[in-house]
């Protein structure tokens, strides 16, 4: 199991990437992270909610209640805004740069 800390600084970008594909609710996103990482990253819902709240305040996403229900409770969906899309593109290109640098710093030049 990999610590969820590896996502620190990029939790919002991961969520935005999922929302780029379409609207989603909290559980869907935490489930996606767990599934894509093969169960290696177990991100807690509280972490996702804090990220949601921060992104709503920064107008990167918007929330709305869905019509579907689970056991009598409505699901709260999130949709990405135009500002969110711009933010995602900026952060994903930043990640590509950082990834290259970290590869050199952690693995070394022999990786070439």
């Amino acid at each position: 199991m990999v610590s969820a800390d590896v996502l620190r600084g990029y939790t919002e970008t991961v969520i935005l990437r999922k929302l780029m594909e379409g609207d989603a609710y909290g559980y869907e996103i935490s489930h996606m992270i767990s599934e894509v990482s093969g169960g290696e990253i177990d991100i807690k819902d509280a972490t996702i909610y804090i990220a949601f709240r921060r992104m709503e305040e920064n107008e990167l996403i918007k929330a709305y209640w869905g019509n579907d229900e689970t056991g009598g409770a409505r699901r709260r969906y999130y949709t990405i805004t135009e500002k969110g899309k711009e933010y995602y593109l900026a952060k994903s290109s930043e990640w590509l740069k950082i990834n290259k640098i970290l590869m050199k710093l952690i693995i070394g030049d022999e990786q070439k």
């Binding site: 609710y25 909290g26 559980y27 819902d45 909610y49 689970t70 056991g71 409770a73 409505r74 709260r76």
Partner: peptide, 17 residues
């Protein structure tokens, strides 16, 4: 109140899974 309802539906999703 919104957050409470959202957490409740998430708990139900987890339970179902």
């Amino acid at each position: 109140l919104d957050y409470k309802e959202e957490v409740y539906s998430t708990l139900l999703d987890h339970a179902q899974s």
